[in-house]
């Protein structure tokens, strides 16, 4: 399969995704910069994690309007598979390709654990809660640090 891994300013683990796709799974994979308008011959798209556009405004809100995301919208409309990891998942929510929106965790604490979601009522146990109204049962391991992420620029 031909994978593409999107890259935004401040993406991370994009190199890891490419490494796994190429060297572990043996697929063809390449990066596509966020300013590109085409996904070429992609069979599948990976949107990696990180802090696209510094998480300014809302996580994923600015990345959602980048040129490559217009290509992703068209790709999805044709039935193409897209995997959003971490910030990539947030970008997909902001883009309206996944339902719901991410809000701060009730405890404002970092939580790293497997969360089994049932979309019948809001979930209160993940770091950023994912509000779902209508989709099938899904399993999502989530490890997203809201409070630590805010502090990072001060520490570097």
């Amino acid at each position: 399969m031909n994978f593409v891994v999107l890259q935004f300013p401040a993406s991370n683990c994009d190199q890891d995704a490419l490494h796994v796709l190429r060297n572990v799974l043996g697929h063809s994979a390449r990066f596509v910069w966020h300013k590109e308008t085409s996904l070429g011959n992609a069979d599948a798209v990976i949107i990696p994690g990180g802090f696209s556009y510094g998480d300014y405004l809302r996580t994923g809100a600015i990345a959602r309007f980048s040129p490559v995301m217009q290509a992703v919208q068209a790709f999805v409309a044709k039935g193409g598979p897209v995997l959003g990891i971490c910030n990539g998942f947030q970008v997909l929510c902001e883009a309206g390709l996944l339902p719901g929106a991410l809000i701060r965790n009730r405890s404002l604490q970092f939580r790293c654990e497997h969360i089994f979601l049932k979309p019948s009522r809001p979930i209160h146990r993940s770091p950023t809660r994912f509000r779902v109204t209508n989709c099938s049962v899904c399993r999502l391991p989530m490890a997203k640090v809201v409070t630590l992420r805010m502090k990072r620029p001060w520490r570097i």
Partner: peptide
Amino acid sequence: KFLSNPVI
């Protein structure tokens, strides 16, 4: 469309 997220 952009500055707020009408869902939340």
